[in-house]
Design a protein around this nucleic acid. Sequence first.
DNA 1: GGCGTTAAGTTACAATATAACATTGAGGAT
DNA 2: ATCCTCAATGTTATATTGTAACTTAACGCC
Lengths: 154, 154
Amino acid sequence: MHAHDHHEHHGNDLTHAAQATLEKAGEQWTTMRASIFEALAGFDKPASAYDIAEAVSKREGRRVAANSVYRILDLFVASNLARRVESANAYVANAHPDCLHDCIFLVCDSCGNTTHLDDDSITKTVRSAAKGAGFSPVRPVIEVRGKCADCDEA
Amino acid sequence: MHAHDHHEHHGNDLTHAAQATLEKAGEQWTTMRASIFEALAGFDKPASAYDIAEAVSKREGRRVAANSVYRILDLFVASNLARRVESANAYVANAHPDCLHDCIFLVCDSCGNTTHLDDDSITKTVRSAAKGAGFSPVRPVIEVRGKCADCDEA
DNA sequence: GGCGTTAAGTTACAATATAACATTGAGGAT
DNA sequence: ATCCTCAATGTTATATTGTAACTTAACGCC
């Protein structure tokens, strides 16, 4: 288990935490950003930029271009409000935007559900292995493809 | 250092090792597959399917569609002749197709060069962390984005 | 009011990936 | 030899993901 105590936010609590984090970073919490964050947080599995564009478009009754969604997702990722799941070309909301982790995603190949681990001992080991090879690590990408408990029963 | 002794193949040696591995898996070593493997191995950094299609097209003086390249790359990845670098949407030849590893890629954000580590202790730890979370790991994706030694000097 | 700055809209396009179907060629069965 | 079959590749079309360039809108400031 990781040592420090962090809180997993949900629902409005999560939205407020996201807003607070973004504003603390000197960025604005606009209605568009709020919509996109809501949409992202509303998915129960990683969502592509296009999934989000579609969800927001539907909810708002107007066309929102993928383009705009990408811009905002990039901002979210840079501000720790969201993460990109590289092996799925998709994004997930970060349940604790107020604390910084290299995180580990477990992606189910069969249902697409994704859970995440925050095991700092692993990520530190990976970072230091990279350093040992003369590399300056910036962002570890640690994902495990496989089967989640539910799908594995079958 | 990882414990077992494995040989890094190069040039013709690598091609022969790849051929042997593919044939041992019950697949044919066709001229098309050989061409694509050569092209892939000829890149000094991860190459996209389209990069490879272009290289093979040029070398053979005829159009080779990305499509065919994808099919063969998929086969290569399944047979351990090549790896996909998820965070780069690109592929690299595996320098030792005759032995099986979860491997770790260090991808330079500035020059694109990619080196790989085979540190089984790390990958085992990642796999077992996944298992500990009720997940059945199949394929760990461990990549580190950052700066290589050369680019880091600047 | 005019101006600068940031966010978002719009359009176009590039890059990556897959699907569906046609063709080819090698090997075996008759 | 002819036909049959099957795997591999070719061909065409299209889906999905990601960027670029430029325009418009909103707001604070002078």
